[in-house]
Design a protein around this nucleic acid. Structure first.
Lengths: 126, 126
DNA sequence: GGTATATTTAGTTGGTTAGCTAAATATGCA
DNA sequence: TGCATATTTAGCTAACCAACTAAATATACC
């Protein structure tokens, strides 16, 4: 039962859900792209991704200085849960907005994203 | 997206999940039966049920002095989520143990349960 | 090796929440 | 109406968690 609550705890945070939604649209995303989407510090994003990985929903792969994340679609036991979430997200205005933001982000070279995040303020005071 | 995180927050608590599992087995349960199962005060159980109701997963019905809770199986949008949870619970030892406890509880007259809870210690120091 | 860069870990702070007790709100019955 | 009972609300405390900053750990390139 701890396994089950672990999955739901992982899904019970808005920013984690947003990152998961992003991974549903794109096979693989690197940390800086997810950071750019949800506008938090790298440390915060890293912690969130750690929770998603611990839940078994997401896997990561390290390549050079970058870490890439992807949804664990190969796990049969999560299939219908993931489908359900995808269906729910399809009718969510928030998710739609993020999807648009993501297409903009994907137009950038990841190198530039990283530089931008470390250089000037990564999270402009709103 | 708040709707979605609301559902997951409701499911992200062990005791709420146990109460939900109970409602999956029995069409309708009254408060005192759920209280007996998870061994918390009535106030705590009431709060938990409030969260489940707010999420839309559970409905309640008042009859006399008792309140009866049931799973909202008629909501099409939750069908596959509920099925997924049921499947996961089927292979959970914790859930199996609760299921046995429940059969014992169901053998009692609810009247007796309530009296017991109010009389001597409802939560015996383990 | 030394420096720059990307991510993670540690440590802190503020806000949320699960649990309790006690008080309030129904409801049933004499 | 008055009393007993079942559930909810209010108010409190302790534990948890998300966010940040700063420091640590890779990794790439010179």
């Amino acid at each position: 039962m701890e396994l089950l609550t672990g999955v739901f705890k992982a899904l019970a945070d808005r920013n984690r859900l947003r990152m998961l939604a992003a991974l549903m649209r794109y096979d693989e995303l690197c940390a800086c792209q997810l950071i750019e989407l949800i506008q938090v510090t790298g440390a915060t994003a890293s912690r969130h991704m750690g929770v998603l990985i611990a839940s078994g929903l997401v896997a990561s792969r390290k390549e050079g200085r970058w870490v890439y994340y992807r949804l664990c679609r190969e796990k049969a036991e999560y299939h219908s849960l993931i489908s359900w979430i995808e269906a729910r997200l399809k009718i969510s205005p928030d998710a739609e907005k993020d999807a648009k933001t993501l297409t903009t982000i994907m137009a950038f070279d990841p190198e530039d994203l990283c530089r931008k995040q470390h250089g000037e303020s990564c999270c402009p005071p709103k």
